[in-house]
Design a protein around this nucleic acid. Structure first.
Lengths: 351, 351
DNA sequence: GCTGCGCATGCAATCGATTACATTTATTTT
DNA sequence: AAAATAAATGTAATCGATTGCATGCGCAGC
């Protein structure tokens, strides 16, 4: 009898199995699959057939071990829960998985993420590259101290000091758009709810606001700039400050949409209606903006695209890593646009 | 001279380096680190010291190759962008990374994710276990056709047919809570906005609604059940249906919060105010619910916890995989609670 | 004092793919 | 036609950790 005992538990087919079926060496299989130019046409056909017959799939762990790579990138995001980031993550996912890379998402604000966890990602092993969506991380994380660190790309936020590549929105330009819109509607007393103080976005958006005010020769009053931190609660706090003001701005721009929602929500509780009593412009155009009451006028940014661009840039960096000379750090800036809804209106001529 | 030429590019230290410094074999180092009981006290101390001196970190790729595992779990989520899921993901992340497992997030609704991508995750290599947050995936994905498939745990949603373990909220109970609340406020004409039809959550929540209506002897009218799909837009469509009704319910429950927001938003555009003209109860308690205008009365579920529990269950399954006999499929149900805000009010005695 | 057992440790195979180098064969050059 | 070159493939080392098996040693039992 020729019958052999077969194991009942099927193992995944390995490159050895393919080699046996195709009647070539494992080296040839490997080459046929990853550098087709280096094997004969006919041989390649045989290998492909054998792959199909066996249902072979490359073992990424083995490949990564041999190639000394991790097969993954890690994304440092300040807060997965923030709807602003999810679209960006989707863009990253799409681009990365096309390149065969896994995406690990690390929430830098999660208590357990502090220090140890983060360092572990950064130290050699786990990731081939790092995508940072959180500009507030200290630079020391990225300034390779002694060992080889994977390449880093910033997206959306970035760190002022470092010269690392970054993909950004035109935050200053966006803020200017918001201000121009309000000015066109006849507003002259315009306030602004800031993001967290250390944050670059806060900074850039504020600069846009001040620039536009200056250009129009409108007042820049410190008591019309409210502190915040991008949260709904911060928007509500700003609303209470606004209410307490002896002289109130007739329009307010906010450094993100969530604060705009919190702001309007709190005003509503005190009987103040938007846009009747005050106009509000947000920033980001998160999903709920369209359906908030009232619909929120805001600045839209191509979020899916920025994720994709950043991932693409990082992948390019990873691929070029061994090759000399280092690519010059890219700094790509994507444009923002104004979306007009119902939270803004022309200033009544009376007031 | 004893001076040797040192490479300028420092490699990560390997287990060999540690062994050399500690003056033991690599086997001993490995054992000292992963099964401390099997080496002498003194030796272990030496190894630990050597680890510190060299800054050694285990190479997970090598370990995973040798142990034939992937070192990661994959989470199948219907839509990363949905704020409902982000908290759950955070819970999963926390638990998984404590166990040294990476978390890969796959958005099943992303066009590119269809078929190929998904299958790739499922087929042997990439993941040691799968956490499914999307009940609408076809069972065939999980019914191992021929090869060994990693363990699967459902969280939040699940697939009716399969007997796989699942961690769930008490959806029916939550819906009953919502209905009881409205009934207590004097409402007798109560409608409901459904989720997508195939979805188990839609089904369970609907069942809760009908059960509570029946218990109170209130009418169950087909024209008061509105079709939906969990999106803001679906809520808005339901609002238009509600407006077109000859006889309108005075209160509406929705199968999730986003639809509640869409519903209220659209009504507002037509001059109908909540809760003055109609009371609304949501489901989920997403972040914005508290700050919507009006604040949304809704059913809260411990989202972070469900993610954590599900991950823990999956990890237990992974660890026990080789050991006989298979654990019995767990089905854990977490309780929901009612959060009362401003979108509901007692029915005016007049109407 | 010899046998046997168990503890601590080392040796070397192994996981599955990649790739430097060697070998064979075919093709071109002079 | 011999020599040089190129193309296709095979052999075996390698990535870094884990682990089955072998070894050596000390101690208890007879």
């Amino acid at each position: 009898m020729e019958q052999e005992l077969k194991e009942t538990v099927k193992q995944s087919p390995t490159i050895q199995d393919v080699a046996r079926v195709a009647n070539v060496s494992t080296a040839t299989v490997s080459r046929a699959l990853s550098s087709p130019g280096r094997v004969a046409e006919e041989t390649r056909r045989l290998v492909i057939e054998a792959v199909q017959e066996t249902g072979y799939q490359v073992n990424l762990t083995a490949r990564n071990l041999r190639r000394k790579q991790a097969g993954a990138i890690v994304v440092l995001v300040p807060n997965i829960g923030n709807p602003f980031f999810s679209q960006i993550l989707a863009g990253i996912e799409t681009t990365a998985s096309k390149a065969g890379l896994n995406v690990l998402i690390a929430d830098t604000r999660q208590p357990h993420a502090q220090e140890g966890q983060l360092q572990e990602y950064l130290d050699n092993n786990r990731a081939d590259g790092i995508l940072v969506l959180d500009g507030s991380l200290e630079d020391r994380f990225f300034l390779a101290p002694n060992r080889t660190r994977p390449p880093v790309v910033f997206a959306c936020e970035w760190s002022e000091g470092t010269k690392l590549p970054s993909i950004r929105f035109d935050n200053e330009g966006g803020a200017v758009l918001a201000l121009e819109h309000l000015a066109t509607l006849g507003h002259t007393k315009i306030g602004h709810v800031l993001g967290p103080l250390g944050n670059v976005l806060t900074h850039e958006r504020r600069r846009g606001v001040e620039k536009a005010l200056k250009a129009r020769n409108l007042p820049i009053r410190p008591d019309w700039f409210f502190e915040g931190d991008f949260s709904l609660a911060a928007g509500a706090r700003a609303a209470r400050s606004w209410l307490a003001l002896p002289e109130r701005p007739t329009a307010v721009t906010t450094s993100n949409d969530e604060m705009a929602c919190g702001f309007m929500s709190e005003l509503h509780k005190h009987g103040v209606e938007v846009p009747r009593d005050v106009s509000v412009v947000g920033f980001d155009d998160i999903d709920i903006a369209e359906r908030f009451i009232p619909g929120l006028t805001t600045i839209r940014q191509p979020r899916f695209d920025i994720g994709g661009s950043a991932a693409a840039e990082l992948i390019a960096l990873i691929r070029s890593q061994d090759r000399s000379p280092a690519l010059p750090p890219v700094r790509q800036v994507l444009e923002a646009s104004l979306i007009v809804r119902s939270s803004t209106r022309a200033l009544a001529p009376s007031s």
